[in-house]
C-alpha cells in the first residue's frame, strides 16, 4: 500500500471530471442493447412508418415526407432525451451517486455527463433519421447556413429536453422514469408537426396552437425549408429556454438534496 498521507487533490478540474463522466455514459449506451435499439433503430423505424405507412394517406402526392421530417426529428429528440430519465434513476438507485458526492470532484459533473452523452447520442440518431429520410426521397432545400442553424437548434432542443428528463430521473423511481418518454411520444402528435392543425377537430385547435411542440417543430421546419422561423422561432426559444432553466435548476436542487436513508 502507498502511504496513507497521500490525499486526493481537491483540485478544481471540472472538464476532466465531465470528460470522465461522458466516457462513462458513452460506454453505458454502447454496451446496452436496449439503448442502442431505442436510440438508433427506433427513430429510423418511426421515420419509415410515417413515410411508408401513413405517408400515402396523409398526402397522396407523396410529398408528406417533406412535411413530416422536422416533426420526426423533434419527436425522436424528445424520445431519446427521455432515456436520460432512466439512466439517472438507475444511478440514483445504486450507491454511485453517493460515491460521486463524497469525492472531491466538480459537483454536478455526473449530471453534465448524462446530458452531454444524451446530446451526442441524439445528434447521431438525428443524422441516422435524416439519412433514412433522404433514402426514402426527402429532398431538403436548406443551404449550409440553415443546416448549421438546424443542427445547433436541434442540439439546444435536446439539451433542454434532457435536463428536464434528468430532473425527472432524480425525482422518480426507475420504473416511473421509464414512462417519461410517453410525454415526448404523444404530445407532438397534437401539434402542427404531423398534420396541419386545421385538419384537426376544432376543439383541439386551441391546445394544438398553444402547446410548445407547435412552435418548436415549426422552427425546425423553417430551417430545413431554408426560411426564417419568424415569431415561431422566438416562441420556441422561450419555451426551450424555460424548459432548460426549470430542468437544470430542478436537477441541481434535487441532486444536492438527495438523502440516502
Amino acid at each position: 500500500m502507498t502511504t496513507a498521507t497521500q490525499f486526493a487533490r481537491p483540485t478544481n478540474r471540472p472538464f476532466l471530471d465531465i470528460g470522465a463522466m461522458i466516457l462513462r455514459e458513452s460506454r453505458r449506451t454502447i454496451r446496452s442493447i436496449d439503448m442502442l435499439v431505442t436510440g438508433l433503430a427506433l427513430p429510423a423505424l418511426i421515420m419509415c412508418v410515417f413515410v411508408i405507412v401513413f405517408g400515402g394517406a396523409a398526402q397522396r402526392d407523396g410529398h408528406y415526407i417533406q412535411y413530416v421530417v422536422p416533426a420526426i426529428l423533434i419527436l425522436c429528440a424528445g424520445f431519446g432525451s427521455a432515456m436520460t430519465a432512466v439512466t439517472v434513476a438507475k444511478d440514483m438507485r445504486g450507491g454511485i451517486i453517493d460515491r460521486f458526492r463524497t469525492m472531491p470532484i466538480f459537483g454536478g459533473s455526473v449530471l453534465v455527463g448524462h446530458v452531454a452523452a444524451s446530446v451526442i447520442r441524439n445528434l447521431i440518431s438525428s443524422v441516422v433519421v435524416i439519412g433514412v429520410a433522404v433514402l426514402l426521397g426527402f429532398r431538403p432545400s436548406a443551404d449550409l447556413a440553415h443546416w448549421v442553424l438546424a443542427l445547433l437548434y436541434l442540439a439546444f432542443t435536446i439539451t433542454a429536453f434532457t435536463w428536464l428528463c434528468c430532473a425527472a430521473g432524480l425525482l422518480l423511481s426507475e420504473e416511473a422514469a421509464g414512462s417519461v418518454n410517453f410525454v415526448f411520444l404523444f404530445l407532438p402528435y397534437v401539434s402542427s408537426g404531423f398534420v396541419p392543425i386545421d385538419t384537426m377537430p376544432s376543439w383541439l385547435h386551441g391546445f394544438a396552437n398553444a402547446q410548445p411542440f407547435t412552435p418548436i417543430t415549426e422552427t425546425m421546419r423553417a430551417f430545413i425549408n431554408n426560411t426564417s422561423p419568424g415569431t415561431n422561432g422566438w416562441l420556441a426559444l422561450a419555451w426551450l429556454g424555460g424548459v432548460l432553466v426549470v430542468g437544470y435548476g430542478a436537477s441541481l436542487i434535487l441532486f444536492r438534496r438527495r438523502v440516502n436513508s
Binding site: R24, R93, G95, I96, R99, N260
Partner: peptide
C-alpha cells in the same frame, strides 16, 4: 472515502 450499503460500481 465512502463505501455505502449499495454497490457504487457500474
Amino acid at each position: 472515502s465512502l463505501t455505502g450499503q449499495f454497490a457504487a460500481v457500474d
